[in-house]
Design a protein around this nucleic acid. Structure first.
Length: 350
DNA sequence: AACTCGGGGAC
DNA sequence: GTCCCAGAGTT
């Protein structure tokens, strides 16, 4: 674990050289423009927001103009950005600012959070960027960076993890340069400590990063737990003849492993036995069940139950065609096999 | 704590 | 195709 002053100092120095200093909402950086940009940037990437932001502030350049605008105009300016509740909340909040705060954005954490569309992180970003207040933020960038630098386990969206991240974010606040600090964290996460393939070799925190130290850059932050994938079962027939050859069957032209050579695959044990009796000469009762193979697809998990058997050959009626072939072990490396099948064959014929 | 809300970019 | 993105509000 490293000291907070080191992290902030390194990150601010990095920001001075490599941060983004020319974003549209930075010039001029007024509370209204900061607010609008933060709302637009919720769950939306900078490159997408930039054009919408410029169009929006050209039409509605300040808070009173937004408050006076009809909702249809606000929604039209938002059209294409998505999450349209953001636009409605923005509009409502502007009108509330006229009533409650003299037509300006309140310079106060609780008053900001009381406005629709502004949560703790957006409020912190507004306070820090518009007024230089020592307020933490916790967006996707900061979550990712903190999980890596401090080696935080668990999905960052989980409330208990989020609570811990807020505490760390609070503890890192530097005594000065709060606007730059806020922007530095986001620029760092967005351009260097990226989700995939972070540029660790260029990282100012590479010597203090726990994930880097432990070789766990790819594992942190933990991904959102997905819904459990459906589990399917299938049975494989690993049939070997007297010459040590293995019987392969070509996969159908559609579906998983389409067109690859694999082992005869059946839905259940009874069908596997029936297939054996239909196609093979040998003792169907003298088979050896091997340990199941687990394989994950994007949309389901497949548990394969291999059944190993010594056979004399194919039945006379079954020609060595229609998707069946015998393969010597030495040939296997040149045949297109599914990865789990190749692994199984390597283990079983080694 | 889980769900909803959009559209797009990166892979 | 999946996952995520400068999250917040609702249930």
């Amino acid at each position: 674990m490293s000291a907070a002053p080191d992290i902030t100092a390194h990150l601010l120095a990095w920001f001075d050289r490599h941060g983004r200093h020319d974003l549209p909402w930075q010039h001029p950086r007024t509370p209204y423009r900061v607010w609008l940009s933060e709302i637009m940037l919720q769950q939306t990437q900078v490159s997408v927001v930039a054009g919408y932001f410029e169009r929006f502030v050209a039409a509605l350049p300040d808070l009173p103009a937004l408050a006076r605008a009809p909702q249809d105009e606000v929604l039209a300016l938002w059209s294409g950005l998505g999450y349209y509740a953001r636009a409605r909340h923005l509009h409502t909040a502007a009108k509330l600012c006229l009533e409650r705060h003299g037509g300006e954005l309140p310079h106060d954490l609780d008053a900001l959070i009381a406005l629709p569309g502004i949560g703790r992180s957006t409020a912190g970003a507004i306070l820090a960027q518009a007024w230089g207040d020592p307020a933490p933020i916790l967006d996707g960038n900061v979550k990712r960076v903190l999980c890596r630098v401090f080696g935080i386990e668990g999905w960052p969206g989980q409330p208990v993890v989020e609570k811990r991240l807020w505490a760390i974010a609070e503890s890192l606040l530097p005594p000065t340069r709060l606007a730059d600090w806020t922007q530095a964290q986001m620029d760092f996460g967005a351009t260097l400590c990226t989700r995939a393939n972070p540029a660790c070799a260029l990282c100012p925190l590479q010597d203090v990063c726990v994930a880097r130290r432990d070789g766990r850059i790819a594992d942190l932050p933990a991904p959102k737990p997905g819904k459990p994938l459906p589990q399917r079962e299938a049975h494989l027939l690993l049939a070997e003849d007297g010459e040590g050859r293995v019987l392969l069957q070509r996969r159908p032209p559609t579906g998983v492993w389409a067109g690859l050579w694999s082992l005869p695959q059946l839905d259940d044990a009874a069908q596997a036995r029936a297939w054996f009796c239909d196609h093979l000469r040998g003792d169907a009762s003298a088979t050896q069940a091997l340990l199941p193979i687990e394989h994950a697809f994007s949309h389901y998990r497949l548990r394969l139950h291999p059944l190993r058997a010594r056979v004399e050959g194919l039945k006379p009626r079954i020609a060595d065609n229609d998707g069946l072939r015998w393969a010597r072990r030495a040939e296997l490396s040149a045949i297109g096999l599914p990865a789990p099948i190749r692994k199984l064959l390597q283990e079983q014929t080694a």
